[in-house]
Computed example of a mutant assay.
Amino acid sequence: MHAEPKPIAPKAADSKQAESSFKVACSNCNLRELCLPVGLNADEMQQLDGMVATRKKIKQGGHLYSSGDAFTMLYAIRTGFFKTSVVSEDGREQVTGFQMAGEIIGLDGIVSDKHNCNAIALEDAEVCVMPFNHVEDLSREIPMLQRHVHKIMSREIVRENGVMMLLANMRAEERLAAFLLNLLQRLHARGYSQSELILRMTREEIGSYLGMKLETVSRTFSKFSEDGIIEVKQKNIRILDHDKLKAIFNASTC
């Protein structure tokens, strides 16, 4: 979060052929506490097992779904990283988010029954496919699941508000500090190190998300490195001084 060539995204039909589908049980998944409500009883877990239709593999650069596709499914990421993005009329890509294992994507399609962004795998990934009509039906039977779905939607609203504040009020250093701290927090919740991470996205993609030019992103990474805050080895980032990184971010909220 070594420069890799950016793969050409295959067409939707090609990516569908590359996907593999097979049944999976939520009750046996080690990520269930991240993407499902905690505290369900055995019967409720068995019902949830029936909610997940298949598991699919998406190759790096492949589309899980594209803008304009009919919305019928939600997807729980089991492994890998995704980015969501929209493309302007003149062909420019705007990255709207990065998603990782344990998170649910596809919510953008609820409002109009069509997806309004592209979801692209940044590395080989695997998702659990949940038909949205099944999620709705089961939510009526399991109040805890309904609350969890509402919580996920609310989290998306809060995230979008946070990005708006980040783009409107923060300097380049504050934006990158906030981005790294957010990634570290999310990865730590999944059992990863609090001080090391591998960036699955390119500097260009980070810049698109943070509203920064590529040169500014690279310059800010270099400054953090020169100041002894981080150590950068291509895509490998090691946090050397958490307090300084937090102080840069907190300066924008004081």
Rank of each mutant, 00 (worst) to 15 (best):
M100E: 01
A42R: 15
V163S: 09
E141R: 15
E4S: 06
H242K: 14
L210N: 03
G162V: 10
A189L: 09
V149T: 11
L183H: 11
V149H: 07
S67I: 09
P10L: 08
F81E: 05
K246P: 04
N28M: 12
A76Y: 04
I104A: 02
F81R: 12
V163H: 10
V129Y: 03
A121I: 02
N118Y: 06
E226S: 12
M212I: 04
L181F: 06
R238S: 09
R32W: 02
A53D: 09
L183A: 07
S139M: 07
G102I: 06
Q47T: 11
A189N: 12
V87I: 13
R147Y: 12
D49V: 00
E123L: 08
R32A: 01
K233C: 08
I157T: 15
F71R: 09
M1R: 06
S195R: 13
V149I: 15
I206P: 05
K23N: 14
T220A: 08
D124T: 08
E173S: 05
T202R: 11
R171M: 14
T72P: 00
L64N: 02
M164R: 15
I77S: 01
I157Y: 14
S27R: 11
K244L: 09
G162F: 06
G91T: 08
S222C: 08
I229D: 02
I230A: 04
K11Q: 14
E4W: 01
L31E: 03
I8R: 14
L183F: 10
G102S: 07
L240R: 10
R159C: 07
M73D: 00
Y209L: 03
N133L: 07
R238T: 02
N41Y: 10
R92T: 11
